[in-house]
Design a binder for these strands. Structure first.
Lengths: 162, 162
DNA sequence: TATTGTTATACTCTATAACTATA
DNA sequence: TATAGTTATAGAGTATAACAATA
């Protein structure tokens, strides 16, 4: 999608000599473009289940920590607590997950997968893994592993700025 | 941000034995998390200029192809034509870019940077490059170059599905 | 007083259809 | 009729404040 036919004008108006292709040198820009492409593929696949990527992620997180609270799910998804409400409402309406009052603290729910949710998630895992391969079909297996390692190193950074 | 304290329940309810940590194995999920972290840093930096990432990208693209049309800009940014309108309106209001009727086809505008736009973009490039380094400070220079190459390979894939 | 889940709200981003003026 | 730019609109995603029930 970058560089269409564009205007056929010379680009000798550039400001600094080394930064002319600044976007191509930024990891942030490349991350954004790559993420959009990979997600486009995944979203299409998940449409068959009437699910969004975040809802798939939620199911996977619930499976790994059954009985967790909504506040924990929010942190795991890196979203704010109010966003968990409509997300879980939809998963409950689809019969994939359940909120159960099962804690000493009666304010909170334990979140669990239903049997249908477990079975659906099993399918979703295959779909997501296949979509991931399709969207990165320009990479070898070794490159895919390398990319995954580098990305984990980036986003699992301990917090702290400037 | 993943795995907070969570519930202290056993995770022996997992469906398939190999897919228990499915999210950690997906490039799409890692791309999303990494992109969010890197953008968070960039957005904070761009706030000082009252600009969003897409507006910075637009300025960089205009510099490389001065006189381009809005439809070309839309394709370069991978956004739809209607989204270009408020974006360019803001850049014009800030005195950074201009729409000029300068083509044989009188329906279209040529888009150019103003002098202020060029000077501002020069600053923005430094800010963005520095923000990129900060957000990926867990990577060595070699790893950064490697990541950039792999990401380009992913999103510059020739189109085609399934 | 603090926390869990919720409601309400708002702002951005995204996507689509339809309009205008040119071609 | 087709295209460039625009308008209007609707849907997601995101972020914040504030409320009820419980701690």
């Amino acid at each position: 999608m970058p560089s269409p036919s564009l205007a056929s004008l010379p680009a000798d108006t550039q400001a600094s000599p080394a930064d002319s292709d600044i976007l191509d040198s930024l990891i942030g820009y490349a991350l954004r473009r790559a993420q959009l492409q990979v997600f486009q593929n995944l979203v299409e696949q998940l449409n068959a289940f009437d699910l969004r990527p975040a809802q798939f992620s939620a199911l996977a997180i619930i499976e790994q920590a059954p009985g967790l609270m909504q506040t924990d799910l929010a942190r795991s998804l890196a979203i704010d607590p109010p966003q968990v409400v409509p997300l879980l409402n939809k998963l409950e309406k689809q019969g994939l997950a359940l909120r159960i009052r099962c804690k000493p603290d009666k304010r909170s729910y334990g979140i669990f997968l239903s049997k249908v949710g477990e079975a659906t998630l099993k399918q979703l895992k295959e779909v997501a893994a296949q979509s991931d391969l399709t969207a990165t079909r320009n990479l070898s297996d070794a490159e895919r592993a390398q990319l995954l390692t580098l990305l984990h190193k980036v986003y699992r950074t301990p917090a702290g700025d400037s």
